[in-house]
Design a protein around this nucleic acid. Structure first.
Lengths: 173, 173
DNA sequence: AGTGAAAGAACCAATGG
DNA sequence: CCATTGGTTCTTTCACT
């Protein structure tokens, strides 16, 4: 399946090779508006920035090419899709397993309930944010998919009462 | 500034009152595709789902009205906009300050460097994910904006080496 | 880089199965 | 609840400044 964010063009599919982006004030405004609402019409952004729609379009494309904008995603309420329980799970690995962290990280990324993965300093190696159906699903996730893994030395689960992403709830940034 | 995700219509601007989220297989496919790439054309989603474009469009609108899809946002690389250092900060509040958590949470949400806020169980009250320019900015954030707050009993900062959101890097889900 | 104009695509409401 | 149609708006490319 093609990626339609890139439908018009042929810019690098990879994460990015970007030389460090120099964003002027116009670029920053565009980024802010698209962060607040990815469906803001190009027209409207152009008007807000005081430039022509075609110019604005070109800048947005450039921002994607440079990796400043990595993609556009729908923000889906986990509870609405049957995942009403969220948790943070701290994971400590065995010392010998730290050689190939990438492999374990890919494994985590492949688990369907994982929302995000933090690879961190300190006494824990990973912290993952998960959204599951209920406490039974959480137990199963920890017991079957984490604790049983040979590289996992231990886990520590914290239930999330509320989760907020400020940028995602202020459409008029 | 208007919210252009709602340009055509008049559905509730609030978070949502919707209880009824019965998603059939078609709805789930739509949600998955828009989660992977919010700019997937309506036509393409309709084709993938085997329904007419107008029907598909109506379903997407309905999903927004019901609060299943909360919005569409550009995924911006923090490092590309001058915020190359990410951290997790655990915050413990004084017992007497737990009366109005919402106020403190709104305060956190208003800090420009805060990416997300977790209100959690356990010995910590909040865990916030921040993206800042450098370690000096991180120090200032913790010292000036958190530790000095009267309701804050203590903080614990963990630097993030890597942060991944699995759904956001698989455009062809 | 920025612009204007024109072709193509997507959106949205109304209508009918 | 779903499909078809048609008017309107947005996107995207291109020749030019």
């Amino acid at each position: 399946m093609p990626n339609y964010s890139e439908r018009g063009g042929s810019f690098p599919p990879g994460p990015n090779n970007a030389r460090h982006a120099f964003l002027d004030e116009t670029d920053r405004l565009i980024v802010r508006m698209l962060q607040a609402d990815a469906r803001t019409p190009n027209n409207a952004i152009a008007a807000a920035a005081g430039i022509a729609p075609s110019t604005c379009h070109g800048r947005i494309r450039s921002l994607q090419e440079r990796g400043v904008i990595r993609g556009f995603h729908a923000d889906v309420d986990p509870a609405a899709v049957g995942r009403g329980l969220q948790a943070l799970i701290a994971i400590r690995l065995h010392a010998h397993a730290r050689a190939n962290l990438t492999e374990f990280e890919n494994y985590l990324a492949g688990l369907p309930d994982v929302e995000s993965i933090f690879f961190v300093t300190g006494d824990r190696d990973f912290l993952i944010h998960v959204a599951v159906a209920d406490s039974a699903a959480l137990r199963d996730l920890v017991a079957a998919n984490l604790s049983l893994r040979p590289e996992v030395a231990g886990t520590n689960t914290t239930v999330i009462f509320e989760y907020v992403r400020p940028t995602e709830r202020s459409p008029s940034a």
